[in-house]
Amino acid sequence: MNSKAIIGIATVLACAAIASASLFGSTLKSVAFADVQRKSERVDIYGVLDKPSIKAIRGATMVQFDLIEEKTNQRLTVVYDNPNSALPPNFPGASHARAAGVWDPSRGALVSNFVTTKCPSKYEEKNMDATTRKLVDQWKESTGQSGS
C-alpha cells in the first residue's frame, strides 16, 4: 500500500473517530409525548405551540407553555428555564416548537434549557375557509342579515 493511501485512510479514520466521539452527549432521542415520562435521560420533543398556554414565570427566561403532539393530539407542559438566555421575542408567534430537556415529575413538566421554534418563514397555511367565511359575513352585514 502506498503512502498516499495510508495517509488518506488514516486521515479519514481520524475524522470518523472524532465524529463518533462527538456524538457522546450530543445526541437527543426524539420521543413521542406518551414516552416522555418514562425517560430519565434528556429527550427531544416537537409539537404545535399552544399559544394561550404561554405563561411567563420569570420574564422570558422562565416560561411555561404546552406543546401538542400533532399525531396524537396529546398535550405536554414544558418549562423553559435558562437564566442566561431568554426565549427569542418571536417565540409567541411560532407555529411549532422543539424542546430538549428532562422530565421533572415534581413539576409535571419537561424542564428544558434549549427551545427552538419553527422559523416563521413559512407558517402553516391559514385556512382559506376563513377567508370565504369572512366574505359571507361581510355580505350578510351589507344586507342586514348578520343576526340571522
Binding site: C15, I18, A19, A21, S22, L23, G25, S26, T27, L28, K29, S30, V31, D44, A100, F114
Partner: peptide, 28 residues
C-alpha cells in the same frame, strides 16, 4: 441525516444538537 438513519435502522428518531458539530468540526 441522523434522524433519517435512525428511522431507517429502527433505533428511534435521534437528532444531534449543535454541540455535535462544534465538537466534531473544531479539530477538523
Amino acid at each position: 441525516t441522523m434522524p433519517i438513519w435512525g428511522a431507517w435502522f429502527r433505533v428511534g428518531q435521534k437528532t444531534v444538537d449543535y454541540s455535535f458539530y462544534n465538537k466534531a468540526l473544531l479539530p477538523v
